[in-house]
Amino acid sequence: MYKVNIGKKILSANEEYALKNSQFLTEHKKLCLNMISSPGSGKTTILTRTISELKDKIKIGVIEGDIQTDIDAERIRATEAPVVQINTNGACHLLAVQVNGALENLPVGDLDLIFIENVGNLVCPSAFELGETGKIAVLSVTEGDDKPAKYPAIFAKSKALLINKIDLLGAGVQVDFDIERVKADARKLNKGIELFLVSAKTGKGMTSWYEWLVKSVESL
């Protein structure tokens, strides 16, 4: 028996495309945020409300990642924002090469901010860099306050965490969700993470999120 040293990165093909995307975004001075969460935590609802309410301040485009269908792209299209749908046909996350193609099909020059809505999945998308400026995690209150402890990767890597569906807390509905625990667990691994408590349904708490977005676009 003999051994051969290889020392080769295995996901290098994805990383090459991620680097291309990142260079493209830097060159064009565009902010690009990769939204990651479990299915149904409210990513698309947050996006449609954000696009409509920031219409006069910043121009937003969206890359929609879903396993199947263009249901989410249709919801974005209804806001009149430019959108490109990617179907992964079974894959649990987006790849940088797919985003590379989508960027070519967006009117990037007209935009200030590009959102990528990743496939609904709290684990896999966090392991595949897309060349984005930053990741945004979304956690809705019905998913439980133990998620940052149990799924640390995405909370460790995100620039911001939106805790969504806060309208369900104390609204005569029984939801056990300790916001302080989520904050503490998220900050354990990521001291600088921005936290926003929001309801994409009622609009509560969205103003500070908008201010952060506008500030992030301006400081590019």
Binding site: M1, V4, N5, K8, I10, E15, A156, L189, K191
Partner: peptide, 20 residues
């Protein structure tokens, strides 16, 4: 407990063993 998380180690194929 104030620290910066360093980038995660990438997936690397380190070595292969072959039969002689």
């Amino acid at each position: 407990d104030q620290f910066d998380l360093l980038p995660d180690a990438p997936l690397v194929l380190e070595e292969i063993e072959f039969q002689t």
